[in-house]
Simulated scan of single mutants.
Amino acid sequence: MVAGNWWGLAAPVGTDPAIIAKLADAVKAAVSKRDIMQQFEKLGLDAVGNSPADFSVQIQQEAAVWKETIRKAGIKAE
């Protein structure tokens, strides 16, 4: 099994879409700056800065993969 990790920003359900858009725009602006990208690269990280909709899809896909992995492995909560 190969697994990676990722980080992202999330906001509470019901957060004003204008605030979500403003945060997404700020992240995209930050990761488009060469000096910031270089800092990420030094850490071995790939900064993406995708859209909130794309991030939501990523989370859903990741959850589905882990749900199936847990099911196949027969993992149960104690």
Rank of each mutant, 00 (worst) to 15 (best):
M1P: 08
A3G: 12
A3R: 01
N5D: 01
W6R: 14
W7G: 12
W7F: 15
W7I: 11
G8Q: 13
A10M: 13
A11F: 05
A11E: 13
A11D: 12
P12W: 08
P12F: 10
V13A: 14
G14H: 08
T15G: 15
T15A: 06
P17Q: 01
P17H: 00
A18M: 04
A18S: 09
I19T: 14
I19H: 15
I20M: 05
I20V: 07
I20Y: 11
A21N: 03
K22Y: 04
K22F: 10
K22M: 07
L23I: 11
A24N: 03
A24P: 03
D25A: 13
D25F: 03
V27Q: 06
K28N: 01
V31Q: 02
K33Q: 10
K33A: 06
R34N: 10
D35P: 14
D35F: 02
I36D: 06
M37Q: 12
Q38C: 07
K42P: 11
L43M: 11
L43W: 08
L45D: 15
D46M: 13
A47R: 00
A47P: 09
A47Y: 07
G49W: 02
G49V: 00
N50P: 06
N50M: 12
N50C: 12
S51I: 00
S51V: 00
P52H: 00
D54H: 07
D54Y: 04
D54S: 11
F55Y: 10
S56G: 15
I59E: 09
Q61E: 06
E62Q: 14
E62I: 02
E62R: 09
A63R: 15
A63P: 08
A64I: 01
V65A: 06
V65I: 15
V65Q: 14
V65N: 04
W66T: 03
K67M: 10
K67R: 12
K67Q: 13
E68D: 14
E68G: 03
I70E: 03
R71N: 02
A73W: 01
I75F: 01
K76D: 14
A77C: 05
